[in-house]
Amino acid sequence: MLKASGIYKRYGREIVLRNAGLDLNSEIKALIGINGSGKSTFLKIIAGIVQAERGEVFINGKDMTRLPPEQRNVGYVPQYPALFQHLNVEKNILYGVRKNKKASKAVYEKVVEMLALSDILRKQPRELSGGYRSRVSLARALVPQPHILLMDEPLSGMDIVVRKKMLPDFRQVLKEFQIPVLYVTHDHEESELMADSFAVMDRGEIRSVVSAAEAFEIIQNSTLQTM
């Protein structure tokens, strides 16, 4: 599904990603790391928003390394919902539908139902609560049926109580569509509630781990070493 390898990226003199790589199959994989560790940059490189200096990105066997974001068919849910404020909820959700309109319409109806959005379709984004904005952001990314979905701490701006309530809903929707998901987080509980498998971003490299607990152990050891 996704195979990224040898990703190297620096901003100025600071090397953010050294030799980062990751395989993603039909699963929800949590990519765990502390703030500023390069998780979001890695995600943006997969999406094509940021260009890596070295490395390769293959999606469904196709080399996407040099393709712009609009040719990758990768869903992206950023940290803040980033809804299009000039469009109502329905138009936001349908924004990415360009081809396969019939199939996308079926996905749209299902997503709207599962995320309980039918009553707010005519509303403007500014009229929505934070929770609903995140739901709309997820729906908007899912409806065009992307090859993979990249989620960058999509609930980080929310209260822990709301987050705990929403995570099972999100997981259920993602499982229903059987879409491979790379879920970036720095929260232990969130990663366990969401993910099937785990990886950790450690000093610019990505390592597969068996559990969120192992990921946080690695992060803790690295932090102690650099102190």
């Binding site: 999406a47 609009e70 990768v74 869903g75 992206y76 940290q79 980033a82 809804l83 990415g96 908007r140």
Partner: peptide, 9 residues
Amino acid sequence: EVIDVARTL
């Protein structure tokens, strides 16, 4: 992010 999302869509 608004532009990033539009690009991925």
